[in-house]
Simulated assay, not measured.
Amino acid sequence: MQFGIFTVGDVTPDPTNGTTPSEHDRIKAMVALAQKAEEVGLDVFATGEHHNPPFVPSSPTTMLGWIAARTERLLLSTATTLITTNDPVKIAEDFAVLQHLSDGRVDLMLGRGNTGPVYPWFGQDIREGMNLAIENYALLHRLWREEVVDWQGRFRSPLQGFTAAPRPLDGVPPFVWHGSIRSPEIAEQAAFYGNGFFSNHIFWPREHTRRMVELYRTRFAHYGHGTPEQAIVGLGGQVFMRRNSQDAVREFRPYFDNAPVYGHGPSLEEFAAQTPLTVGSPQEVVEKTLSFREYVGDYQRQLFLVDHAGLPLKTVLEQIDMLGEEVVPVLREEFARNRPATVPDAPTHASLLAARRAAEVSAP
């Protein structure tokens, strides 16, 4: 099972002292988080994609390429790549280049994005968001798997005899996760292609997440990709830790109350009771994270949000240290306990390449 962190890259004032990092500082801090993640033994670093204030990660592949040059083992991903407002041709090219630069240490999560004003900035209409997600991924899927593509759709100019360059590393496309908070159509899309389904799992109660993952698993099997238990599932969640849970709640409360993603709503206690948000000791994070398996089954990837809402870099690096030293080692052991042998590991470039070669050998 893979464990890592993701960032949404918000530039938010620290509510405890009113200071706001510069865009430069925030971008550099995101790189520091990735390097710390590798240092403490985490598996994955993922960055969001946003094109509107107060967020800075408008060019994920640029950032991930920089991080790739400064890490050796860390798997680099996104959370999310906007399949609706990006040209699928450019996605195919950018991530293939990143694949080569990182020696295969890359996958990506596709999502629609929920910021209405961004769509027209890129010539699109948010009312077509789902149709864009479906059509654009259908093209991206082909661009990585077919040498020459003839294609025509609704949302971009036709392609005639087009070859995306460079080709994917070793002829193996990056693994794709389809990320969603609330859309069953995205779970269906992930199942149709046999790709991964990532339930962001931050805002909604466990019953909603259970239904979404169950739908994906059922449809994954329906399309002939394997049993429901073999479907590839990822979850998100935010944590904040201190040795003493009361200290964690007291320190995190002003950040939660002013968070641009989910502040100014239910209280911290209400939100923590109803969603995966965990604010407390490392042991409490372990216990709550282990409970996710009770309603989604054995899964492959767990990503933690640790830097949202104006938390200072020093505090976030402390969070990553606790994840690497006290939380993830226990989670690895406990999640591995009684895990059926039929449940696959999270795909990597190496495992996908091995599967392709095995299929070629067994082909008549």
Score class of each variant (00 low, 15 high):
residue 75 L to K: 09
residue 227 T to L: 15
residue 67 I to L: 13
residue 342 T to K: 11
residue 60 P to A: 07
residue 186 I to P: 15
residue 270 E to H: 06
residue 346 A to C: 08
residue 42 L to Y: 05
residue 210 R to K: 14
residue 246 Q to P: 05
residue 288 K to C: 06
residue 248 A to W: 08
residue 359 A to M: 10
residue 85 T to Y: 08
residue 94 D to F: 04
residue 217 R to D: 05
residue 14 D to E: 07
residue 155 F to M: 01
residue 303 L to R: 05
residue 120 P to Y: 04
residue 8 V to S: 10
residue 135 E to G: 09
residue 30 M to Y: 08
residue 118 V to I: 15
residue 167 R to F: 05
residue 341 A to R: 11
residue 282 P to K: 11
residue 129 G to P: 03
residue 211 R to I: 01
residue 58 S to W: 10
residue 69 A to Y: 02
residue 139 L to W: 01
residue 172 V to T: 03
residue 143 L to V: 04
residue 179 G to M: 06
residue 136 N to T: 09
residue 159 L to Y: 12
residue 305 L to M: 10
residue 149 V to G: 03
residue 264 H to N: 13
residue 285 V to E: 12
residue 325 E to V: 05
residue 3 F to D: 04
residue 282 P to T: 06
residue 81 T to N: 11
residue 251 E to G: 01
residue 134 I to H: 10
residue 40 V to Y: 12
residue 217 R to Q: 15
residue 282 P to E: 10
residue 151 W to K: 03
residue 54 P to R: 07
residue 50 H to Q: 11
residue 9 G to R: 02
residue 84 T to W: 00
residue 285 V to P: 10
residue 194 G to N: 02
residue 93 E to K: 01
residue 238 Q to Y: 11
residue 154 R to F: 01
residue 101 L to I: 15
residue 156 R to K: 05
residue 226 G to E: 04
residue 234 G to V: 02
residue 62 T to Y: 14
residue 2 Q to S: 04
residue 132 L to S: 11
residue 299 Y to R: 04
residue 251 E to F: 13
residue 105 R to C: 01
residue 66 W to F: 14
residue 126 I to W: 11
residue 41 G to A: 12
